[in-house]
Amino acid sequence: MTTYAALLRGINVGGNKKVPMAELRALLQESGHGAVRTYLQSGQAVFTSDHGDEETLAAELTAAIERRFGFSADVIVRGHEYLRAVAEACPFPAADLQPKQLHVTYFSAPVDAARFAGIDQPAFLPEEFRLGDRVLYLYAPDGLGRSKLAEQLSRPRLTKDLIATSRNWNTVLKLVEMTAPAHP
């Protein structure tokens, strides 16, 4: 049995694409998954499954959401080991920063630096970004809402053919904790 986190993109934002967390938990349970929990209202669910891989589970959940709620929502599914590795590989001094200053954008597939080569990073300092394994780490000292670099990074041409969904550092760490194997 593997524990996964499902990251839903663009739900419960501005009154659009409403997915109540109780209904999301029920949907995952009805789909045969166990130990279902959600975190916040912004689209994180943790569950156990003994069938499928991350891509298959994401596709199944995407289809189930569309059937249940009548709209499409992009979903990325990742297991504990990956989530832990992402947190451990952070290129910024996370322990020294406020959680609102550090964000991780999870991608549905690997990305290479060439995709972001057109961004003049020095022009955005002190904001910075670094790529990792299917993730982008963003340091935005004034928070995401004021970040000019985040605005550039979210342009459709940079995320073409990808699902991309961002989480703040508190959520990144909470998902690592929630997906960790239980110890007796």
Rank of each mutant, 00 (worst) to 15 (best):
G132S: 09
A35W: 05
A164N: 02
V104T: 12
T62H: 15
D133C: 14
L28T: 03
F107N: 02
T56I: 01
I119N: 07
Y139N: 03
R68T: 12
V135H: 05
I119S: 11
P93R: 11
L153Q: 06
P91H: 09
Q98M: 12
E60Y: 03
A117T: 07
K100D: 08
P122K: 13
L83H: 09
L125Y: 15
Q98T: 10
V104W: 06
A117I: 04
T159P: 00
G132I: 08
D74T: 07
H51M: 00
S154F: 04
A117S: 14
E88K: 06
E88L: 13
Q121E: 15
A109I: 00
A58F: 11
L162E: 05
A140W: 10
R37I: 00
V135G: 03
V75F: 12
Q44W: 04
R67E: 14
R37D: 02
D142W: 01
S31Y: 00
A63R: 13
D112T: 11
E30Y: 00
E151V: 06
L153C: 07
V46M: 08
T56G: 02
A87R: 15
T48V: 09
E81G: 11
L158Q: 02
A117E: 13
Q121P: 06
V135K: 05
D50H: 00
S49E: 00
R78H: 02
P91C: 10
Q98K: 15
R84M: 07
A123S: 15
